[in-house]
Design a protein around this nucleic acid. Structure first.
Length: 387
DNA sequence: AAAACCGGCAACCGCCGCGCT
DNA sequence: GAGCGCGGCGGTTGCCGGTTT
């Protein structure tokens, strides 16, 4: 059998199919803390009933901090076509020319959009029908530019919605504009209170954001009204001198996660049927929230002398001093949570509100694709359903 | 309103290449 | 040099939402 070898894992022992939010969280948490030196061992170490390859793919294609999703621009598509002419089906090579894009995504886009266009372009003179199709192809970029986060796979949290194990998870519509507003508010208005976990491992968030955008205010509406919960209870810290900033970071971060009802997350994560997906319960998970806390702190610091975040190798072992990556992670999380309208808007915010720090550190080409003036059509203002 | 069809995309499968022992 | 393990890659599948009939 030449290179025949045993399967990478016992298929009967691993969970397959769509990833649950709980699994995502666990994978993110683990990689954040330990990196991913060994994919095969990772599932066990992380307490996931998944094949290592599955974890890797999930991380690479979806959870990775620097992954960019949706909205292939015309420039990107044309570049992709040219690259395909020279490279063929070398998706990973092609993807390497598109920072943040995954080979899987490139492949999918090619197979679903561009492949159709190619023969049409060649024969477009000969067939009226085809030219008609061809004419819709670019508007088809709006078909997938219609914000994948509104599509069925754009946001894994949606999975929660269609996962049969819990249909009762509340969903909340959220428009692009609202999301943008929320993010803007986070960058401007730090008068936000406050998070902490309660003794029952339920995260309680209260928000007293002073802004009154509909969804911005609503996103806290179903939070517990338990107030005066002190972070010190669980977020023990040796040094207090930056506590205010840290708290601000916490506030920002957790409020930033507003529509993503964290108590719902943990309820979901800790539900018995969800736990069945995992090898071990996601215990209090203070570590995870501390991780987020640190990320938030790092984000707010955003020093100018950062290493540029090109590395796709997100080494979770140190978020200290890797603030850009943390920022990327947060941005990715933001995208995941549907808090951004789209990457362009988000990028605008990054550039405008972070004192252009990213501009100084990131090669221009890295963000080339964010600069294109593509916008979501007005009418395509998507509704995002978050739980 | 319901059924059939279609498109998009996440996830899986199996092979390959490389590095280590 | 052979065997093995691992990560990576490309092809394919299957599910789900949207659209059409």
């Amino acid at each position: 059998m030449g290179k025949g070898r045993a399967p990478c894992c016992d298929k009967s022992q691993v969970k397959r199919g769509p990833w649950s939010p709980a699994e995502d969280l666990r994978l993110i948490t683990f990689i954040q803390k330990h990196g991913h030196d060994n994919w095969r061992a990772l599932p066990k170490q992380a307490g996931l009933l998944r094949c290592g390859k599955s974890c890797r793919l999930r991380w690479i294609n979806y959870l990775r901090p620097d992954v960019k999703r949706g909205n292939f621009t015309q420039e990107e598509e044309e570049a992709m076509i040219k690259l395909h002419e020279t490279l063929g089906n070398k998706w990973s090579k092609i993807a390497s020319y598109f920072p943040g894009r995954t080979d899987n995504e490139i492949k999918n886009i090619w197979n679903t959009h561009l492949k159709k266009r190619l023969p049409l372009a060649k024969n477009s003179d000969s067939s009226g029908d085809e030219s008609k199709e061809s004419s819709i192809t670019y508007s088809s970029s709006s078909s997938f530019s219609s914000n994948p986060s509104c599509g069925k796979r754009g946001l894994e949290s949606e999975e929660l919605g269609h996962r049969s194990d819990d249909e009762s998870v509340p969903k909340r519509p959220c428009s692009n504009n609202d999301q943008l507003t929320i993010v803007q508010e986070k960058l401007i208005d730090h008068d936000v209170q406050k998070e902490v976990t309660n003794p029952n491992d339920q995260l309680i968030i209260t928000s007293t954001t002073t802004t009154t955008t509909s969804s911005a205010s609503s996103h806290a509406s179903n939070m517990s009204n338990s107030t005066n919960t002190t972070q010190a209870d669980h977020v023990s810290r040796d040094d207090d001198h930056d506590q205010e900033d840290d708290q601000m970071a916490n506030n920002w971060l957790f409020d930033f996660m507003g529509p993503y009802d964290v108590s719902d997350i943990l309820q979901e994560v800790n539900k018995p049927d969800t736990q069945a997906d995992l090898m071990a319960p996601l215990e209090a998970d203070y570590e995870f929230w501390n991780m987020l806390e640190n990320l938030g702190t790092n984000f707010l610091q955003q020093p100018n002398d950062q290493v540029q975040p090109q590395s796709s190798n997100f080494n979770g072992e140190g978020h200290k001093g890797e603030n850009i990556e943390s920022w990327d992670w947060i941005r990715a999380l933001e995208n995941e949570l549907g808090l951004t309208g789209n990457d362009n808007q988000n990028q605008q915010l990054v550039l405008e509100d972070q004192s252009h720090a990213m501009e100084e550190q990131v090669p221009a080409e890295m963000y080339f694709h964010y600069d294109v003036e593509e916008k979501l059509p007005e009418e395509s203002d998507p509704c995002l359903y978050l739980y």
